[in-house]
């Protein structure tokens, strides 16, 4: 990947809060939160399902409007960043257009971002996510893991420097997930992007991120902020290392055990 890209952005959330619904049916998804995601780092958001972690990510992506507070991406609003095409989102559902081929799905991202078509780059990317030979297949002909690879390729096709990953490996089986966890991050780690990853899996969070934020149940608040001081690139062998286990244990402790957060998780 070329290195002449601008520096990945800082993402600053100021008093960010989200409330859904009106009146009696009001639900506070995210309590007022201040957090900064530093340029070029990968931050994992973990927490019980249904807590506001996806909401936080979606507000950063500009897909939800904050009830209070703001998100600034390199000093600009998420919508501005979206328009520039420097931001990419991947979801749990691969969300490929079923009527387009893999190549055309990946190329679509560039089209939407207003970038010129670049067949060579697209095919290269498809090859690098491991789908060489499947360029002309439609999603229906692919396995779940392959679809997710295609979705990641689409996500990267615009060469974004802010990646927002909303449980992108949540729907694939454990074996596939492990493989994707190890293979795909290389694609975005090298060019360097600010990355937010929402995940259910503690080990995935440890494996992929530089920093883990543990969120409580609704309304989400950040209950722990843990540094992952493992070297990059991460490898399969690391998973069995003591350092890895140590972080994993630390996160799990907070998630599943003791104290306030634990009680609130138990209430889930």
């Amino acid at each position: 990947m070329p290195s002449d890209l601008p520096k990945p952005p800082d993402v600053v959330c100021n008093g960010l809060r989200k409330v859904f619904g009106h009146g009696a049916q009001q639900v506070e998804a995210l309590a007022s939160t201040d957090v900064t995601f530093a340029s070029g780092t990968t931050t994992a958001l973990v927490g019980p399902s249904g807590c506001g972690k996806s909401t936080l990510l979606r507000m950063v992506a500009g897909l939800e409007t904050p009830t209070e507070g703001s998100v600034l991406i390199a000093g600009e609003s998420p919508r501005m960043t979206s328009k520039k095409g420097t931001l990419s989102v991947a979801f749990q559902d691969p969300s490929l257009l079923p009527w387009r081929t893999v190549r055309s799905n990946v190329a679509l991202a560039r089209k939407l971002a207003g970038q010129p078509a670049d067949k060579t780059a697209v095919d290269d990317l498809i090859a690098r996510v491991g789908l060489a030979g499947f360029e002309d297949k439609r999603p229906a002909a692919l396995s779940g893991g392959m679809r997710q690879r295609a979705a990641i390729a689409r996500c990267l096709a615009t060469r974004p420097n802010l990646l927002l990953l909303d449980e992108p490996f949540g729907a694939v089986d454990e074996l596939t997930r492990r493989r994707l966890n190890l293979e795909l991050p290389r694609l975005w780690e090298k060019p360097g992007a600010t990355t937010l990853l929402v995940t259910h899996s503690v080990s995935e969070a440890v494996l992929l991120s530089d920093r883990i934020l543990v969120l409580s149940a609704r309304p989400a608040t950040i209950v722990a902020d843990i540094d992952v001081a493992l070297e990059r690139p991460r490898t399969a062998r690391m998973i069995d290392s003591a350092a890895f286990r140590q972080v994993e244990h630390e996160v799990s402790e907070i998630l599943f055990d003791n104290k306030g957060a634990g009680r609130r998780f138990a209430a889930e």
């Binding site: 979606r58 500009g62 979206s82 328009k83 095409g85 559902d93 691969p94 969300s95 939407l112």
Partner: peptide, 27 residues
């Protein structure tokens, strides 16, 4: 439009008209 396709379009700040033609109409 299936899955989170509309979100994908939205994350590129795609205009409603374009989303209509590229995603909603085919779906």
């Amino acid at each position: 439009a299936p899955g989170q396709i509309l979100d994908v379009f939205n994350s590129f700040a795609t205009s409603p008209l374009r989303t209509l033609f590229l995603a909603r109409m085919p779906a």
